[in-house]
Design a protein around this nucleic acid. Sequence first.
DNA 1: TTGTAGGCGTTATCAC
DNA 2: GTGATAACGCCTACAA
Lengths: 341, 341
Amino acid sequence: MKKKASTIKDIAQALNLNISTVSRALNNSRKISDETKKLVQDYAEKVNYRPNAIASSLRMGRGNTIGLVVPRINRQFFSNLIYGVEEVLNSAGYNLLICQSNELLENEKQAINTLINARVDGIIISISKQTASYKHLETVINRDIPLIQTDRVADLLPTNKIVNNNFKASYIAVQHLLDSGYKRIAHISGPLAINIYKERLNGYTKAIEDSRLSDKSPIIFENIITDSEAYKLATGLISDKKMPDAFFAASDFAALGILKALKDNNIRVPDDVGIVGFANEPFTEIISPALTSFDQYSIEMGREAARILLDELENKQENRVPKQITIDPRLIVRESSIRRL
Amino acid sequence: MKKKASTIKDIAQALNLNISTVSRALNNSRKISDETKKLVQDYAEKVNYRPNAIASSLRMGRGNTIGLVVPRINRQFFSNLIYGVEEVLNSAGYNLLICQSNELLENEKQAINTLINARVDGIIISISKQTASYKHLETVINRDIPLIQTDRVADLLPTNKIVNNNFKASYIAVQHLLDSGYKRIAHISGPLAINIYKERLNGYTKAIEDSRLSDKSPIIFENIITDSEAYKLATGLISDKKMPDAFFAASDFAALGILKALKDNNIRVPDDVGIVGFANEPFTEIISPALTSFDQYSIEMGREAARILLDELENKQENRVPKQITIDPRLIVRESSIRRL
DNA sequence: TTGTAGGCGTTATCAC
DNA sequence: GTGATAACGCCTACAA
C-alpha cells in the first residue's frame, strides 16, 4: 500500500482551503491569520507533508544548490576542501552537488554540463591535470553562473579565485634550508602543467638565485609525485654520487620516498641531508624523523571558497571585478630539516 | 546584457515548430524525421540550449539524484567510500548530493530532510555516533525511498546493508597475535554506541575465550580512538607496571598512540609488545615499525553500496527482503606484530 | 485575510 | 510525423 506524497493541493482539499492559502501558511506569510496557519501547519505535520524542492526550484528559478568539481574526492587536500565547503554551504541552506573529474578533461566537461543542466546557483572547481582548454568553463561564465576556482586555477579565466601562495611558500622553504646550513638544495617538482607545481618551482628558482650561495645552479627533478618515483630517483642519485645535501619536494609523498631511500642507504636525515615537503599530510608528523612541511589550510580554503560564492550570490552586482584570495601556507618545521650544527 | 537561457519553447518559435516536436527531436524520438531532428539539434547547439533538468525532474517525478550522508567527509574511510559511490553513480547517470552529519544526530536529521525534499531517488548513509533513534530513517523507508546503510549501521532497520565483518576480523587479529606468541592481549576499543566497535570488541572477547591461554581474562579499554588518548593510556600502564604483551586496537590512531608511548619508554615493538591496528590508514605502512592492520576495502564498499542502490532502483520489486553484504577486511601483517622468536 | 489564475520548462497523451 | 494540450507542485500577482 503505497500512497503518494501529499502536496499542498491535497492539504487544501482536506481543509477546504485554497492552495495559495496553504502555500502561504506553510511559508509563514504574515498575511495569513495565525489560526489558519496553525490549522495548516498541524495538518501538514500530521500527513507528513514535505515541500517538493524540485517544484519550488522550477517556480523560483533557482534551486539553492552549488556544484563542486574536484579531481579526486579521496585525496586528503580535496576532502578537506569539500569538508569546508559543505560546512559553510550547509549552514547557509544550500545543497552540494559533488563531481570528480578523476584528472580527466572529458569527465570535467561532463561534470560541468551536468551542473549547468541541474541549474546550480554556482560552481566551485579545482581543475584537472589535463585541463588546458577552458571552453567548458567559459560556458559557465557566459551563463552568468558564479564560478570560483580553488587551488588549481586557470589564471586567464576572469573568476574569483582562492589559492595558496605557492611561490612564497617555496621561497620560504629554500630560505629555511639555507638557514639550516644546507648548500646544494634540489627541488622535486610535480607535473608542470598544473599551476601550483609551476609556482613552487618558480619560488625555488628565485630563492636559489637570491641566495648567497657560490653555486647558484638549480637542481630540478620534474614530474615526481609518488614516493616510489622519488625513492627511485634518490637511489639513483646515491649510486651516481650526485646526492644534493637537501631536498625541497613539492609533495609530501615525494619527500617520503626520498627519506626512505636515504634511510635505507644509511644517510642521516637531517644531519647529512635535509628534507622539506609540501601539504602537511597526516603522516608527516608521524614518521621518523618527522617531516618539515607546509600546512595549506585546506579546510579553511574550502570555507572561504564557499563564502566568496555566497557573497557573489547575495550581492549580484553588475560590474564585478574578479578577485583572488591568497592564503600563505604555514611552514611547519620538524626534525627533517633542522641540522644540529 | 544578459539573455535568459533558451528553452524548447524558444527553439520552437524560432523554427516555427511545435514545442512537442522540438522536445521529441532533442530526445531523439524515432517518430521524428531526420530532417527535422537535424534542424532542431543544430539550432539548439547554436543557441547553446541546455535542457532544464529541474523541469524535467518535476515532470518525470524523479531527478536521477542520490543522497549521501556521512559523519565526516574528510575522514579517509569516508572519502574513499564517497569516491567509490561517485564513480559508480556517475557512470550510471546519477548525481550525488552529499551531506555530513559531523557526528550529530540533529544534523543527520536535517540532512535526511533536505534529501527527502530534494526528492532524491535513494539514500546511502553511514549513521552518526549519536544516532540511537531512527525515526528520521524510518521516514525514509516509509516514503519508499531506497535506503542503503554502510559501515555504521542500525541493525534493526530493514534496509540493505553493506558492512565489514568486524567480528571475524577481530577474531583473526587476536589469533594472529596468539600465533606470534603473545599471551596477554589487550583490546583498545572505541565508543561502543557504534556497532562496528561493539562487534570488534565481541570478536576479541570470543577469540580470547576460544584460545588455549591459561589466563583467559579479557583486558579491555573503552572509548579510545585518538593517538593522544592511547598514548596516555599506555604511559599509565607502563608506570603501573600493568603492561600487556600485545594490543589489538580498534583504530589505527589508537594503535599509533600506543606505539609512540612504547617507543618513548624503550619498550621494543614487536619484540616486547605486539600491536595490531584497524583501517589500514596510509600512515600504517610508513611508520617504523610498520603497523599490522586491516584493509577495509572502503572504495569497494562505496562502489558496492551504489551498485545495490542502483539495482534496487531498477528492479522495483514488491516484496524485497533486505539483504546484507558483508566484506571481510584483509589482515595486512607488518612488522609490529611479528615476533622474532 | 483569502481566492483565482497563470506560469516555471518539460514530457506524455491524444488527436490529426 | 507533427501539433495541441494538460499536467508535474509550487509561488505570486491580482482580484475580491
